[in-house]
């Protein structure tokens, strides 16, 4: 199901409530209680999921990931946006209305 939303870089994003997360062999697995669906976010997806406990801008997430992983900023940002779009489509994250740095 698509929400027809798209991510706006200036808007902070945060994870939705109603998901049970568990670590399995270094990967993050989620159960969405409302839909009864299970997701595997993988290792890096799990790191991103943990960061989204608080509202964060995409720039802030990229900065955090660059401090942990050996990757170019442009590559990181492009792949992060694609991943976050998937999370948004599944209703696992939401965008805040206000703009933050």
């Amino acid at each position: 199901m698509s929400t027809n939303q798209s991510l706006l870089p200036a808007r902070p994003i945060q994870r939705e409530t109603g998901n049970i997360a568990s670590d399995m062999n270094g990967e993050k697995v989620l159960l969405n209680v409302n839909k009864g669906k299970y997701f595997n976010l993988g290792e890096i997806g799990g790191v991103i999921w943990e960061l989204l406990e608080q509202p964060m801008s995409i720039r802030s997430i990229v900065d955090q990931l660059l401090s942990i992983y050996a990757v170019e900023r442009a590559t990181c940002e492009q792949q992060l946006l694609a991943f976050l779009d998937q999370l948004l489509d599944e209703g696992l994250i939401f965008m805040h209305d206000e703009v933050r740095d």
Partner: peptide, 16 residues
């Protein structure tokens, strides 16, 4: 030393 980057992907698990 930084960790190796992998493309993050969302995988839907089909568990009944």
């Amino acid at each position: 030393m930084k960790k190796e980057w992998e493309t993050p992907k969302l995988e839907v698990l089909h568990i009944k």
